[in-house]
Design a protein around this nucleic acid. Sequence first.
DNA 1: GACATGCCTGACAACGTTGTCAGGCATCGA
DNA 2: TCGATGCCTGACAACGTTGTCAGGCATGTC
Lengths: 350, 350
Amino acid sequence: MSVNGNVEFPTRTRPTMREVAALSGTSLKTVSRVMNNEAGVTPALVAKVKQAALTLNYQPNFTASSLRRNDGKTNTIGVLLEDIANPFSAALHRAIEEVARARGVAVFAGSVDEDESREQELAAAFISRRVDGLIIVPAGHDQSYLKIEKQSGTPMVFVDRPPALLDADSVLTANFEGAKAGVEHLINHGHRRIAYLGDLETITTAVDRFSGYKDALDRAGIAFDESIVQMNLRASVDAEHVTSKILASPNPPTAIFASQNLISVGVMQALHRFGLQYSVALVGFDDVPMVELIEPGLTALVQNISGLGKAAAEMLFARIDGTNAATEHRVLDVVLRERGSGEIPGPHEK
Amino acid sequence: MSVNGNVEFPTRTRPTMREVAALSGTSLKTVSRVMNNEAGVTPALVAKVKQAALTLNYQPNFTASSLRRNDGKTNTIGVLLEDIANPFSAALHRAIEEVARARGVAVFAGSVDEDESREQELAAAFISRRVDGLIIVPAGHDQSYLKIEKQSGTPMVFVDRPPALLDADSVLTANFEGAKAGVEHLINHGHRRIAYLGDLETITTAVDRFSGYKDALDRAGIAFDESIVQMNLRASVDAEHVTSKILASPNPPTAIFASQNLISVGVMQALHRFGLQYSVALVGFDDVPMVELIEPGLTALVQNISGLGKAAAEMLFARIDGTNAATEHRVLDVVLRERGSGEIPGPHEK
DNA sequence: GACATGCCTGACAACGTTGTCAGGCATCGA
DNA sequence: TCGATGCCTGACAACGTTGTCAGGCATGTC
C-alpha cells in the first residue's frame, strides 16, 4: 500500500557562519565566538548574533570545526561488533552508547559477521572518518593491520576477544574460569559423565571455555571422552541434532555443558523432545532470552555484558583524553545463576 | 584482575596528501587525483604516488574531502531507535546497515528511550555531523522541529511510527489490520470474551492495535468490556500481574490479546502459573525470542522487521540520490503465525 | 617550420570553521 | 591632557581536501 503526500518545498542551501555574520552586521569570527560560548563578547552583540542564527536557522558544522580545531577531535567513536542484531552485541553497544552519550560523543557501529575482511573494511571506513577511537570485537586472527593506525594516535580497545599480533587494551570475560566453575558445579552435583557442546574453534572465547571444561575434568580425575564432545556448532538446530545423537548413544552422559546460548537452546529442545529435561543436567554459558518461561530454568554462567561495554568505553575515553599508561588487560568475572537445570543430581551424588 | 603490557610508541602525526606529494616528488593535486582513481595521470606517476602513500601509510581524510567536494556528501546516515538493545530496534538497525554497507555508507545509531528531548538531541548531534540522511523511530509527538532541517536538504524517513506535524516519508506496519486479524482469529475459534493488554497510549502503534481490537469486536457484535482491558503496560511483570488479576475475577476471559511481546511474556507467565496455558487462548503482537521452547507455542502476529528497515533505507537513499517525488507512506503487512496458543477453542466454537 | 590540438600537471582558491594576532577604543592614573 | 592598560573585535591564515583553470610539452597538420 502506498499513499502520496504533498510535494516538498525547494531546498535552500544551508546557512553558514558567514551568512549569520552578514545578517547580524558583525564578523565571522565573532559569530564563531558566540557559537562556542567564548567569553569576551558584548552581551548586545551576543544577542544580535543569536537572533540572526535563529532567523536563518543556522546549524553548526561540527566536521568543519573539528578539521580546524587544534585538538582535531571529531567526538565520534567507531564500534565493530560481531552482529549488531544479536543480543550480546546489542547489549554491548548499548552500554558503550551510554558512556559516549554522557560525553557528547556519537557512535558509529557495524557488524563484522565473523569475517576478517569485513573487519578491516569497517575499521578503514571509521578511520577515514577520523573517529577519535575504536572499540573492537575482532573476528580475524591478526590485528597487526591496526598497528600503524594505533601509532598514528587512534586509541583502540578490544572487547570479548583479545587482539592478535597487536599490543592493545582489552576487556575480556573470564571464559576459562567460568566454564571451569560451571563444569565443577555439575561434578559437585554428582555427575562424572559430562558432554560438551562448543562453538567454532576459531573463536578464542570458545577455545578458552573448552579449556576450562577439560581442566575441571582433569582436576576431578575424570577422563576426557571424545565421543561426548562436539565443537564447531553454530546454529541451535545443529546442537539439537548432536544432543539427540549423544542421548541415544549406548553410554549417554548424565549432564551436558553448553558453551553458548544458541547451543543451550538446541540442547534444551532435544531434552524436552526426549522428555529428559528433569533427568539430564544442563549448564550453559550465557543467558537465554525469556528463559524464565521454561521449566526447569536454565542454570547459566552469566556474563556482565554491560560491564564489558562500560569498561571498554571508559578505557577508550581515558586514552582519548591522553592517558599514556601501559596497555591494560581487564578480565570480568562470570556469575553462575542456578535455576534448576544444573542442580539435577547425578549418579555419584554424595 | 589487571595485567600490564608494553608501553606504546610515541605517536607520530598522521600524514597528509601534502607529505605524500613531497615524498613522491609531485604536487598535492596529483596525489588527490591518484587517490580518487581519476583518469589522466601517467602510470609511472601513479605508481610513485601509491608507493609514497604506502610508505607513509597515508589514510585519506574523508571528512575533509566531503567538506570540499561539490556534492558535500559525508556518506554517513543517522538512525534514531527506541533502544539499540531491544530486539526490534536491533533487527531494524541491522537491516538498515545492510543496505548502507552496499553503498559504502557508515551508520550512526542512538537510543531515544521514548524521550522527546533525547530524540531532538540525537537528531541535532547527527545533523551537526552532516549526515546525508536520517531514519527515525520517533518518540515525541511533534517532529516539526525537523521541518527546516528537511528543507535544508536532509532527507528523512520515519519507521514504525508516523511523523507528527511534519510531512515526511514513512514505513509502517499494518498495526490496525494486524491486531484486528488476531482478534478475529480468536473469535473464529469460538471466543467472545477476549481481554486486551496494551502498551503506552502515547505510542501510536499501541493506539492503532487497540483500535483494531475494538473494530474486530464491533464487527462481531461483541460489546466492549473495560474490566478486561488494560492499557499502559510496559514491563512483563506488570502484564503478569494484570493477567493474574483478570483471571481471578468473577467473569474471566476465555482468550487474551497481548499487544506486544513483553506483554505476551507476562501473560504466558501468569497462564503457566495458573496452569491455564492450555485452556485460555492467547494471541500476541510481535514474536517472543526463543519462543520455540514453550508449550503451547505462542500464536503471534509477526512483523516484517527487516522489511521495514530495508524499505526505509532504500527510500532514504533514493531521496539522497535526488529523487524529488511526493512524500511516500508505505505500510507492510503482518503475518499471523499459528503455534497453538491462539487455536485453543472457546465456548462458542462451531 | 609554424601553428593548432590535446594531454598532463600544478598553482591557486575554496569548503566552513577556529587560532593568531594586531588594531581600535574606552578607561584609568598621573 | 597624555600615555598606558585592557577589553573587544575583525582580518587573515590555516585545517586537509577537491574544483578550476592555465601553462607546458609533445604530437599532428599543412
